[in-house]
Amino acid sequence: MADFLPSRSVLSVCFPGCVLTSGEAEQQRKSKEIDKCLSREKTYVKRLVKILLLGAGESGKSTFLKQMRIIHGQDFDQRAREEFRPTIYSNVIKGMRVLVDAREKLHIPWGDNENQLHGDKLMAFDTRAPLAAQGMVETRVFLQYLPAIRALWADSGIQNAYDRRREFQLVKLLKMKTGMPLT
């Protein structure tokens, strides 16, 4: 009687779930799960848009990406904002140094001659310090320069230099005219 029964290999082809051992069934379940995951990833990758941004330094590549992120509703969380703070502080100091230097090279007089001391203090900032060289300035260091930055930004000579910024390269500078707080 046993001769007319199909072999195990034939049964496993016709009824794969019935003849599998528990280990084989688990492997098959995992395989199906992996296949589903790969299928989802394939759909995701097909919809994914990749772009290559080329450009010289300070040409706005990072700014463009940040703006796209905001436009498409992925605003920055508090942790991301905290991570950007040292870079923003560095950019403000660098930008103000450029303005102080440009004011002098363009022979623009100070609005208030006492701001020469603030300008000298800012120009003495050590840009070769370990963090500053990486484009990062700690809050405590920035706060030491904040009164000088505020006084300089209020100076008509610096404002005149800023209005002539097309005549020199000004790095990413916070829009201090908007009244955005610096701390």
Rank of each mutant, 00 (worst) to 15 (best):
V49F: 10
S9V: 01
G17H: 11
D155T: 05
M96L: 03
A2E: 15
A154T: 15
A148W: 09
G179C: 04
I158A: 01
A2G: 15
S31A: 05
L20E: 14
A56P: 12
N115W: 08
F64W: 09
R29T: 09
L38T: 11
V141Y: 06
F76I: 00
G55M: 07
E104P: 11
R150C: 05
Q169G: 09
T63S: 03
S9F: 01
Y145T: 12
L5P: 03
L20M: 14
M96D: 01
A154K: 15
M180T: 11
A102Q: 06
H107K: 09
E83I: 03
S22Y: 06
R166W: 01
R128G: 07
L54M: 13
E114H: 05
P181V: 14
E58G: 12
K175W: 01
A2Q: 15
N113W: 11
I149R: 10
L38W: 06
I51H: 09
I88T: 07
A25L: 08
F142H: 11
T127F: 11
Q74S: 09
L131T: 05
R150G: 01
P181W: 08
T139K: 14
F64Y: 03
M68D: 00
Q159F: 00
D120F: 04
R40N: 05
E167F: 03
L20H: 13
C37Q: 13
Y162H: 14
S59T: 10
Q144A: 14
A151Y: 11
L117S: 15
V141F: 10
S31C: 04
